[in-house]
Design a protein around this nucleic acid. Structure first.
Lengths: 226, 226
DNA sequence: ACAAAAGTGTTTAGATTACACCCATGA
DNA sequence: TCATGGGTGTAATCTAAACACTTTTGT
């Protein structure tokens, strides 16, 4: 301990890139900062790491405080530590990203926090380095898609392959060939076809699928390009 | 500032996974910890983030202090923040990895620090979560190989494709088909063939190559599987 | 000439893309 | 029956892996 004492300590924060999916768009949960400096400017949801929790736990705590959701997919993005990134004080921030179902979150709680869901195609300027946090989170997510079926965290338990494709199109900001997308996804072997159709979009109806129960891991060897 | 004051501050450290290449093996720079607890146990090279530097700068500083090298490829691995990971005090650590040429480093300095180069195939037990830091660093590096010519930081300016293959074999801990490896690497279009041969390994001699000068980025679209 | 390392070519299997085509059904 | 979205099939192109083959040169 003596040896450590000569070193400075720092505030350590976590900032969460909370992504949801609604109206065929990826949205971020953002709130207008309630105090100076940059009062009113848009910010990711964040908080400080306390003495008795890991940064992972802090991120999960913030996610629960702001959305009411627990047991959510959360992953580290990167650390941000330029000394003056927050002009108020030296704060080292660890960025995380989370994928949640907007339809399940606690709307009351979000309102209390003054937070809003904003489409990533219409993002306002964000404070500090929050824009960069979002960009890195999105890149991480896209890379992950190559070896794992991502994004099902953003959809209901049951979904059609058309819904899944729309989600991927929102995530990658480009279109996919319907036939090829279907084959690629099914070739991963992680989806189970249900004997139930979504007839809201067409007369024929599209079969619902769900993620198989016994999926430990999509084959690590199997890499798919999107 | 007032708003931040209610939050705790923490020691923030950086730990560096410093990789080098020698005798057809990837080696890590490690040193036996000089104080309790875990005195004598092997540790990555690390240090504390100071008030006036980013974590990236701190990692570069530590790399320079221990190897004498500057302007080195350094990348974030992940953060490690379980409250009791260091039993002595609460320390949040940001792991980095670096690739250096062992033949260029300052041997005197390494000796002063009591550090040693140890092959990754014979790693001793490391303190705290340093083993995990190394494992994550290696995975990051392997992934990076898919879209970028990595590892040339570990070799001299000029190298033969055979030398490069041996390096990749050490990095991935498996063998590559000599013919296919050659075609795959050359297809990236980032190497320039020199009119000079390495005749130390064979009578015929192997042409030296170097990385082309005007390489901004290996095509982001081109993804190669290793 | 031949051994040994360097380098090239060929074949097969699988993945990716573009796109044509068939299917089911309500209006 | 026909328009519409859902779903299947196929040919052309590209990539990866296995492995046979050719080149070069000192001894």
């Amino acid at each position: 301990m003596e040896l450590y004492k000569i070193h400075p300590q720092h505030y350590v924060a976590v900032d969460c890139v909370i992504m949801g999916y609604q109206d065929e768009e990826i949205k971020l949960l953002l709130y207008p900062r309630s105090f100076e400096p940059y009062k009113g400017k848009w910010s990711l949801l964040g908080g400080f790491v306390q003495d008795d929790e890991s940064a992972d736990n802090a991120a999960a705590r913030i996610l629960k405080q702001t959305t009411g959701l627990e047991q959510i997919f959360l992953e580290q993005v990167a650390s941000f530590s330029v000394p003056n990134r927050d002009p108020e004080a030296r704060v080292i921030s660890l960025a995380y990203y989370a994928l949640i179902r907007i339809d399940l979150h606690d709307e009351e709680r979000v309102k209390e926090n003054g937070a809003y869901w904003i489409s990533i195609s219409k993002l306002p300027n964000l404070i500090f380095d929050h824009q960069e946090m979002f960009e890195k989170a999105l890149i991480k997510l896209q890379q992950k898609a190559g070896y794992s079926l991502i994004g099902t965290e953003l959809l209901p338990e049951m979904f059609t392959l058309i819904q899944l494709r729309k989600l991927y199109e929102a995530l990658f900001q480009r279109e996919f060939d319907p036939g090829n997308f279907r084959k690629k996804i099914l070739s991963l072997g992680v989806l189970e076809k249900l004997e139930l159709k979504d007839v809201s979009e067409s007369k024929k109806g599209a079969f619902y699928y769900k993620v198989k129960n016994n999926i430990d891991e999509v084959g690590k060897d199997r890499i798919v390009k999107f």
